[in-house]
Simulated assay, not measured.
Amino acid sequence: MFKQCTISRPVSTTGICLHSGKKSRIVLRPADVNTGIIFHRVDLHNIVDIPAKAEYISDAHLATVLQKGSVRVSTIEHLMSALHGLGIDNIHIDINSEEIPILDGSSDRFVDLLKHARIREQEGFKDFIKIINVVEISEGEGDNKKWARLEPYNGFVVAFSIDFRHPAISSTANFIEINISKESYVKNISRARTFGFIKELKELNSIGLACGGSFENAIVMDDFKILNEEGLRYKDEFVKHKVLDAIGDLYLLGKPLLGRFVAHKSGHSLNTRLVNLLLSKSDSWKVVRNNYKGNI
């Protein structure tokens, strides 16, 4: 049977937040069996604990946001992706602001931090959410239609397609299907950065958003080309970042997934709506143990 995992010792990092532009510090600490993933807003007079579960999702427009009462933790998706990809079940995350730092715009720095903390097995067995019936959600019509679906599968596979009418993106692969394991996640997904357009960045800045966005934490494009001097990390980095985001959003199920996630043009909003839709359909999933023969 697969064992639950946490980290062996506390580790920390500090970085700029994507939307506020301010510095934020997080501390990752070991947690006991069956604790799950819990964010702690330690900057408040009374520390507020927010579990990383779907019931606490309050917004997913430009980033995935958890909220308890009036207290929020935002831009959690890249850290959640690293935790899901590395198979970490239990961890405390202390944060001294509302937003997780963006670091390099991927989950690579979080992966390095977690490895530095030494991932260790615990005595409790790992439970999975296994998809037993298809659940699908969509929005829009025609060329603007977006959709996301969860299908039964004895493993964890992500299949994702994108359709950006931009020469720099359309010249790269617009589809990927990948069997997610620790090894495939670290090698093929974790270094894929978020991306955006210079004109959109200026528009967001004007309303107080994406104030921390830069060439250091995103792939930035004008109307024709990539502006980052170093170019892409993967030849299909755009679609791989969408996979990275989805892996993080899916971990808000509260347990690792056994199933196939298939999506077209999906983002945080649709991903998290699918998570909530699945949880509302108790005949479409079940909690299982020792039911996966693959490589976690």
Rank of each mutant, 00 (worst) to 15 (best):
M1F: 05
Q4L: 10
T6Q: 05
P10G: 06
T13P: 00
T14V: 05
I16L: 14
C17W: 00
R25C: 10
I26E: 02
I26Y: 01
V27A: 04
H40N: 14
H45M: 09
H45N: 13
A63L: 10
L66S: 13
S70T: 12
H78T: 14
P101Q: 04
L103S: 00
D104E: 09
S106D: 01
L114W: 04
I119K: 04
Q122F: 03
Q122C: 03
G124E: 09
K130L: 00
I131H: 02
I132F: 02
I132N: 11
E136W: 01
E139D: 10
E139L: 05
N144M: 05
K146W: 00
K146E: 08
R149Y: 05
Y153E: 14
N154K: 15
V157F: 03
V158L: 08
D163F: 06
A168F: 02
S171Y: 02
N174M: 11
I180Y: 10
K182T: 14
K182P: 04
V186Y: 07
K187S: 15
K187P: 10
R193K: 15
F197V: 02
I198S: 08
E203L: 15
N205F: 01
I207T: 14
L209P: 05
L209S: 06
C211A: 06
F215Q: 10
K225T: 14
L232V: 15
E237W: 02
V239A: 08
H241M: 12
V243G: 04
D245I: 08
D245Q: 08
G248A: 12
G248L: 11
D249P: 01
D249H: 12
P256Q: 11
R260F: 12
A263M: 14
H264V: 11
H264E: 15
S266E: 02
G267P: 11
G267Y: 12
L270T: 09
V275E: 09
N290F: 08
N290K: 08
Y292R: 10
